[in-house]
Design a protein around this nucleic acid. Structure first.
Length: 576
RNA sequence: GGUCCUGUGGUGCAGCCUGGAGUGCACGCCGGCCUGUCAAGCCGGAGGUCGCGGGUUCAAAUCCCGUCAGGACCGCCA
């Protein structure tokens, strides 16, 4: 039907006859005898010279047969990849007429996102979306190639799974053959892949669809794709190596082999919290947290007599006016701090500091404050005193608010965060909460603390972070029954309850479970960051809105009564 | 469940704070002119429940309350 694609035509084709297919991007009419039509396909745009009488309009689908020629002197279009040539002596065949599109098929104009989603098939024609979709395909291919070449075996796991009442809310699927009983869609293949390890698969991977019935965000959809992997007879470093290799391969596939990606740094969770105030540090910029606890150890200032005093230095922040500072304080309060103290550094020799608290702090405190924080004249020191966790997280968020580079700036900075705590605070009954999942292996040095001091136990769980986005997480799993029992004890899960919830996994482990561990990379987030998109909807062909609807298909919708009956279901009216 | 932002011809915006005739800009659409444009240009035309409901007012796109939809975030995502 066609000899080549629009964007592929160049000087080399001059003189040759071509057959092209595509959509009419623009028509520039010059009267009875001349019209220019820009023909667009997934590769680009080429100008065709038509007789003015030929009827083609925007977004009509046409097949054009003509001859490639050099454009006349002075009419080249440097903005177009094919701008040195054009197709002339055109025979036009209209393959499909089209209504005027609901919004311009053009990257240069924005359109309401709902409108784009309702007519996603039109939106996908835009070069930006074409690029994103194809970049995604390259990333998926590179991930698959990398895993295969590292000796991992691709295995598909069930979409119709069994409810495991832990973690994310699951999507439920009614069973027709067993009325009143239900499957669920897997929130991840976590348990399945561990069973594969017991099954001797040794190294598994899958580009797996995962489904979670939780509220949506810019970086979260109901359904998303993970590069899911698991390996036997490995330690944490083996897994990190494999993941790093796959992700860097994907990065090169997306952006080219000569892309400059700095070495992947590793922070312990503690260090990430101390320096960046978050477990997913954006290391593209400085403004790291400084610890002032020692400085104000014996302070007279009540606001600073807290277990932890930390600060960030805002470069050039001394120019901030009253209202800006007030809103900074307000922000800190809304993030959970009791307040925020600020010091403008006017000069260092002699030391002059401007602050509501300046007359209350001692000369020594003022000197060490500026000394420890390494602030320069013109900087603002923002101080939060609180418990360690609050001080870190409030300043971590202020750090992002004041200094975070735009999505296209600062390059790609991958890092690992390791040694996550095993437990994440206490629940209402005073029991530790599993921070990762209950099959996460504790750090070998901390196993003895499991009963006496569970909250200080570190785990062998680790996250991969890119530019402040959590790209994925994994852990070494528990394969020893005695340790598993200690964890369940700490979590307050009795033998019977463990059997009820995870019986099939625990059962499998009794038949010889290899030491194993794994990881899962969020592919949507990875692709979004590589594409320079701030929202994963831009790299998903058919995403849902924030309230989980699809404006194109109108899903979700009511079912016909007969369908419900077949499933043994009855709908409770919404207003009851 | 909560906080904030947005909703105005087909599209993107301005108008709203400080109420006074559906007013404006750009694009698109339809028609006309035009043989070298390239997001062509020029002329003309069509196109509106100012998201929806209620309130205040002589008068509401504008102020107030509610509601719906979209978005960002908190909760949630072991």
């Amino acid at each position: 039907m066609r000899s080549q694609c629009c964007g592929e035509i160049g000087i080399a084709d001059v003189g040759s006859k071509v057959q092209l297919c595509g959509w009419v991007a623009h028509r520039r009419d010059h009267g009875e005898h001349l019209a220019f039509v820009d023909l667009r396909d997934h590769t680009g745009i080429i100008q065709c010279v038509l007789d003015g009488s030929v009827e083609v309009r925007s977004e009509w689908v046409v097949r054009i047969e003509g001859t490639v020629r050099r454009r006349p002197e002075g009419t080249d279009n440097p903005d177009l990849a094919t701008g040195q040539v054009e197709v002339s002596q055109c025979e036009v065949e209209v393959l499909a007429e089209a209504e005027a599109p609901p919004f311009p098929v053009d990257d240069r104009v924005s359109a309401d996102e709902m409108l784009r989603l309702r007519h996603r098939y039109v939106d996908l024609r835009r070069p930006r979306m074409q690029a994103n979709i194809r970049l995604r395909a390259r990333v998926m291919g590179a991930l698959r190639d990398s895993m295969a070449s590292q000796g991992f075996c691709e295995v598909e796991t069930p979409l119709l799974w069994t409810p495991t009442p832990e973690g994310a809310r699951e999507f439920t699927v009614p069973s027709r053959l067993h009325k009143g009983e239900f499957y669920v869609l897997p929130q991840s293949p976590q348990l399945a892949k561990q069973l594969l390890m017991v099954g001797g698969v040794d190294r598994y991977f899958q580009l797996a669809r995962c489904l979670r019935d939780e509220d949506l965000r810019a970086d979260r959809q109901f359904e998303f794709t993970q590069l899911d992997l698991e390996a036997s007879f490995v330690d944490q470093a083996d897994i990190q190596r494999a993941v790093t290799e796959a992700v860097l391969a994907a990065t090169r596939a997306a952006l080219g082999d000569d892309i400059d990606v700095p070495g992947v740094e590793t922070f312990t969770w503690r260090e990430a919290m101390e320096r960046f105030g978050t477990d997913k540090p954006d290391t593209r910029f400085g403004i790291e947290l400084v610890d002032l606890t020692a400085v104000f150890e014996s302070t007279e200032v009540k606001a600073f007599s807290a277990p932890c005093v930390k600060a960030i230095v805002v470069p050039g922040g001394a120019v901030m006016g009253r209202s800006q500072l007030d809103s900074l304080v307000q922000q800190a309060k809304s993030l959970g701090a009791k307040g925020l103290a600020w010091f403008k550094v006017i000069s260092v020799a002699p030391l002059v500091v401007e602050s509501p608290l300046d007359k209350f702090i001692s000369i020594t405190e003022r000197e060490s404050l500026v000394d420890v924080s390494q602030a320069s004249p013109g900087d603002l020191i923002a101080v939060v005193a609180s418990d360690w966790r609050t001080a870190c997280s409030v300043l971590g968020q202020l750090r992002l608010a004041t200094g975070r580079p735009g999505i296209h700036e600062g390059g790609l900075r991958y890092c690992w965060v390791t040694e996550f705590p095993m437990f994440d605070g206490l629940d209402e009954q005073g029991r530790p909460q599993a921070a990762h999942h209950p099959f996460t292996m504790p750090h070998p040095d901390d196993v003895h603390l499991m009963a006496s001091d569970p909250l200080s136990v570190r785990s062998q769980a680790y996250d991969l972070v890119l530019n402040g986005w959590e790209l994925g997480s994994g852990s070494i799993r528990v394969h020893r029954e005695d340790i598993q029992r200690q964890i369940f004890d700490a979590l307050g899960i009795g033998f019977a309850e463990a059997e009820e919830r995870f019986g099939f996994l625990l059962g499998a482990f009794r038949y010889g479970a290899p030491p194993h561990g794994g990881f899962a990379v969020g592919v949507d987030r990875l692709v979004a960051l590589l594409a320079g998109e701030e929202n994963i909807r831009e790299v998903i062909a058919f995403p849902k809105t924030q309230s989980g609807t699809d404006p194109m298909t109108n899903a979700p919708r009511e079912l016909a009564p007969g369908v419900l009956r077949d499933l043994g279901l009855q709908v409770i009216p919404r207003n009851s």
